[in-house]
Computed example of a mutant assay.
Amino acid sequence: MTLVKFNPNNNQKNSFLPGFNDVFDSIFNDTFFSDRLVSRVPAANISESQDHYHIELAAPGLTKEDFKLSLERNVMSIAVEQSSKNDAQERNFNKREFSYNSFVRSFTLPESADQNGIEAKYENGVLCINIPKREDAKIQTRQIEIK
């Protein structure tokens, strides 16, 4: 038996079969299909301070050994390859949303970035990457005299 969602408030005056479109809406709006259409990569925050660029990647449940950072020309890639662990206590999940088996995020660094001074740390589920700016690219402020 198949359950089909029906919305009587949906006014479809131009449709030949009013219930026909509801069938497709219920299929494609189902979480089974929408979960597989969404890419599973962690969200990133990118910010800039006076002398650094900052990238924060939200990836809870991983360890620092899971990450692999690489730099090729001006593209920095963050990759995670995590093997699935089979616990002795196997559970049957009804829905499982927080699992990263593998992903790659790439960021193009600006020319003003100093690629030799990049530092990264993983703390509390967030990978923080600090990219220093070159000396000539740092924001300089000065007071201008008005005449």
Rank of each mutant, 00 (worst) to 15 (best):
S84L: 14
C128Q: 09
L69G: 03
S99P: 02
D30S: 15
S84N: 08
T31P: 12
Y53W: 08
S83N: 15
Q82H: 12
D30A: 08
P18Q: 05
D22T: 14
S83K: 15
Q89P: 04
Q140A: 08
S49I: 03
G61D: 11
P42D: 09
P8N: 09
E119V: 08
K133G: 00
K147V: 10
Y122P: 02
S47L: 11
P42R: 03
A43E: 12
R73E: 12
K133T: 05
N130L: 06
T141K: 04
A43T: 13
Q12L: 11
P18K: 05
I144K: 12
S34Y: 04
E145A: 13
R105Y: 02
P60Y: 01
A59S: 14
F107E: 05
H54D: 07
G61S: 12
S102F: 07
E72I: 15
V23Q: 11
F93A: 11
F24Y: 12
L37H: 11
F16Y: 10
H54G: 15
I139N: 06
S99F: 06
Y122W: 07
I146S: 09
S39D: 13
E81S: 10
L17D: 10
V4D: 02
D22R: 03
Q140H: 05
R36L: 09
P60S: 13
I27R: 01
I129R: 00
V104D: 07
F20V: 03
S26G: 06
I78N: 01
L62E: 07
R91V: 10
E81P: 00
F20R: 11
L3Y: 11
Q140P: 00
A137N: 06
S34F: 04
R134G: 02
N11R: 08
L69A: 06
N116E: 10
N101R: 06
F33S: 11
D66Y: 06
M76H: 00
R40G: 09
N130P: 03
E72Q: 15
N10W: 07
L127K: 00
N21M: 04
I129Y: 00
T141E: 10
A137T: 13
V104H: 02
S70M: 04
D35F: 02
R96A: 09
E65L: 11
D30Y: 08
K95I: 10
K133C: 01
D30W: 10
Y100N: 07
Q50H: 07
N10M: 12
M76V: 02
K138L: 10
N29F: 02
S39Q: 15
N86W: 13
